[in-house]
Design a protein around this nucleic acid. Structure first.
Lengths: 238, 238
DNA sequence: ACTATTGACTTGTATATACAAGTTGAATGT
DNA sequence: ACATTCAACTTGTATATACAAGTCAATAGT
């Protein structure tokens, strides 16, 4: 079979439930099957089921209530990461467009680099991507990404247009973002940033640098983000 | 006894280990006793010990490595919440001073309020606190806090000067912050904000609104923060 | 002197079971 | 008609056990 049996059962169950929640099989606010039902259906014991559910709780897909059950939540965009909350209306994916300014390109790490790199990361060089995102045709989000070039075959030829970078990494390379750290600042737009985000020079811009951890040890995603917060807000769960 | 036995064992063990880590009994990078040792010492079984350790992992106090053990990390300031990272040097608590602009004061909720309130929260009114924080005598952090006035007896008479609000809530009211959501913006300093943070009017200021969840259901902490990011950065884990 | 293997540790996954505690709706009693 | 009790669910906590898999140092073999 294609889905290897080396994957632990609790993780398989987690993946299944996660897929179901994302695909909308369970309505927001509705109950998941009870733990005992899940045991019966998937042929595992309750601790295993609970392990899977705990992971879903951690990532915000469900919350639990004793005596009641596991309640499905509106799936967050990403774990603890960002979503954009507009002043006008909720931003569905249809309104968010992504333009690739720099296609994935293999290069050396910038020197100096804002974060400290592990040895493995230094040795392999990195993949570099620049994107500009639009909400209702207005540029609001300019991000520069550095990803270590470790076991990312054919990554540079993948198209990221209007796709989530995280989803590509997850689906094609089994890389999952697990958390990370970030630095935040409010800065004045430089001429370049102002031009990209259609702001006058000197306008306040939200600036962030982030280092994201993944399930691959020593493999981190580094992003620098410039955000036009004139009409929109960055919204995050944690 | 004073420590009630209704507290689950895994939680007692968690509290104990947490206290030990914070007090510095375990050096950063060193190993915690193995799971089996902890079983023997505390008279519980491995799943119980593992439950306690999982909680510590989630909160960033330790991380685990299969075959090796549980490794102690530099305790984070708070769960997923903020710390301040200076340009000059690491900021120890000795350099961070807090001035209370508005002592805890019982009042009605502002109307309108940035976040939606639960019924219970609306009914009870709130406690209002304003603080200004200094790093090396420079003001960098102005925060406005609203806390629902539910079972917070004698809170208004407590002194918060140079104490963590979270620690007071945790130690005196058993309220633990569990996560939350936030909105981020970069704005121009108004006259008032500029004066408080010693910035010229119009200078970029990092603005955030946050709603923090706690272990008390329906009890949230609401904060509005203005941050002077001229020389410092907000640093956060998630 | 160097390499490979073994064994004793560690954490990770999983089973089977039991009872406590919170929720809910149906049955019961007034 | 209404309130109370109760039974059948739910998740929460905990025990006891087993084996898999990763780490590391001592041991044995060359």
């Amino acid at each position: 079979m294609s889905t290897n049996n080396k994957i632990p059962q609790y993780k398989k169950l987690y993946e299944t439930l996660r897929r179901h929640i994302i695909s909308g099989i369970y309505e927001e606010g509705s109950l998941l099957p009870s733990e005992n039902e899940l045991c019966a259906v998937h042929g595992v014991t309750r601790p295993t089921v609970r392990h899977a559910l705990e992971t879903l709780v951690q990532e915000g897909f469900i919350y639990k209530k004793q005596g009641k059950g596991s309640i499905v939540q509106k799936p967050p965009q990403d774990i603890g990461i960002l979503s954009i909350s507009g002043t006008s209306s909720a931003i569905g994916k249809q309104y968010l467009q992504t333009q690739i300014l720099q296609k994935p390109k293999i290069t050396a790490w910038p020197d100096p680099f804002s974060f400290e790199l592990s040895e493995a990361e230094k040795d392999f060089g990195c993949v570099y991507i620049e994107r500009l995102r639009f909400v209702n045709e207005q540029p609001i989000f300019y991000d520069i990404n550095h990803i270590p070039n470790i076991r990312l075959s054919r990554f540079t030829s993948r198209t990221l247009e209007n796709k989530s970078l995280f989803e590509v990494l997850r689906n094609n390379y089994q890389i999952e973002v697990k958390g990370g750290e970030q630095k935040l600042k409010a800065i004045r737009a430089t001429a370049k940033i102002g031009k990209l985000l259609k702001l006058e020079e000197g306008a306040p811009v939200l600036y962030m640098e982030r280092k994201l951890n993944t399930n691959r040890e020593g493999f981190h995603i580094y992003s620098t983000i410039f955000f036009n917060s004139e009409k929109h807000t960055i919204f995050g769960h944690f």
